[in-house]
Design a protein around this nucleic acid. Sequence first.
DNA 1: TAAACCATACCAACTGGTCGGTTTGTTTAA
DNA 2: TTAAACAAACCGACCAGTTGGTATGGTTTA
Lengths: 220, 220
Amino acid sequence: MTDMQEKIPSNASFPLNPDKDGRQIRGDRTRQALVESAFEEIYMHGFRAASLNDIIKKAGCTKGSLYHHFADKHALGLAATAEFMGAHIKELWIDPLAETADPLTSIRTIIGHYAFGDVGHDPRLGCPFQNLTQEMAGIDEDFQNYFKNLFEAWRDALVDALKRGERNGTVRKGIDAESVATLIIASHQGVASMIKATQDEGVGHTATSAFFDYLDSLRP
Amino acid sequence: MTDMQEKIPSNASFPLNPDKDGRQIRGDRTRQALVESAFEEIYMHGFRAASLNDIIKKAGCTKGSLYHHFADKHALGLAATAEFMGAHIKELWIDPLAETADPLTSIRTIIGHYAFGDVGHDPRLGCPFQNLTQEMAGIDEDFQNYFKNLFEAWRDALVDALKRGERNGTVRKGIDAESVATLIIASHQGVASMIKATQDEGVGHTATSAFFDYLDSLRP
DNA sequence: TAAACCATACCAACTGGTCGGTTTGTTTAA
DNA sequence: TTAAACAAACCGACCAGTTGGTATGGTTTA
């Protein structure tokens, strides 16, 4: 259950050999189909409301396969979460921030991606991270820990980039990088939340305008 | 079901007559107990996970009473939502903003209440509005409409106050009041969301510091 | 009496999870 | 080169428990 979380991300080399249907890769394919359909069902209905029967239907396998690969629903959900959410935050936030010399511009670009809806998910369905976080926080320790770690990595990437900006003169000196980083994430999450609440993407554009002004206020 | 939404808020004059146990007020009392325990259960477990059996147990009545007063779970949830959430937003935001001459200071005070946890709910359980919004938005039209209206009233109160501040010189002229108001709500919701996600109230204090700086940047 | 109010027993649908058994691919040994 | 032995992968009927909701009859009050 706990080692599941560490085991999942290491499936990078799939498909190994799509032609030969060996025992190993057949199992891997079933498992991958389960994880993918689990993520979709969880994203659309939430973890608790996601039905295992629907998940296996979408994955094209049966209960037996599911419980061969995963101990229980909890382990499946954790696997799906780790595989997709971690990758999303890493690709869209952590990696771009890691080396940028001008963090405020980078952040503006990233937020712009969200505002214009090319981040791979329907904004009206909410941010997957936000959705699951709100549902599972406080009721499941394993999900809780995963969120906490992911959030810390996210915020640390922002803090590092902001401090780098302070040193090279693209960010006003004297700001509290941790505080600003936290507010940036919170604002972003909040906007996603409001878009979902109102089912109106216009809210995102409206808020983004003021958010960009805020970013500018952090310039020297 | 739809008229329920309009019927609920007009119970302002409760209790009517606690001494005389007439038919009318006996029913009102049962109904009120149901609405209250429904709100608590929904707040703690979410709407879908809230069990009607638990609700009637906490309310001290039975299924018969419940389905005498409400058409179904949906109507009960809507009633509880309208009664408690609407009142909360009105008391904490809309009323104080309605007449203030210095909106930025008022907003700072309101956010301060949340940051120091004296708003009547455990921050780690999340904001009730935020919780329900995230769960029900996009899957239930009636809840959706209620959220949309409440959010608009909330934002309008902020916009009016900010424009008033622009006129009387407590707010910098030339800001986009709608945009700023939207970002303020989003930030606040986002912070609540992050506190719940990390189960760490310190996040609120950290983010609030940067948020106060942002408010100051809106001064003349 | 009539109507509002409440209690109990009950229902079909669905939940996550289990289990005995079958299929399939690999390994071993003759 | 076969065939036996083995284990991973898979199947689907089934389980107990819970859900929201209903049917029906009794009680309280105007």
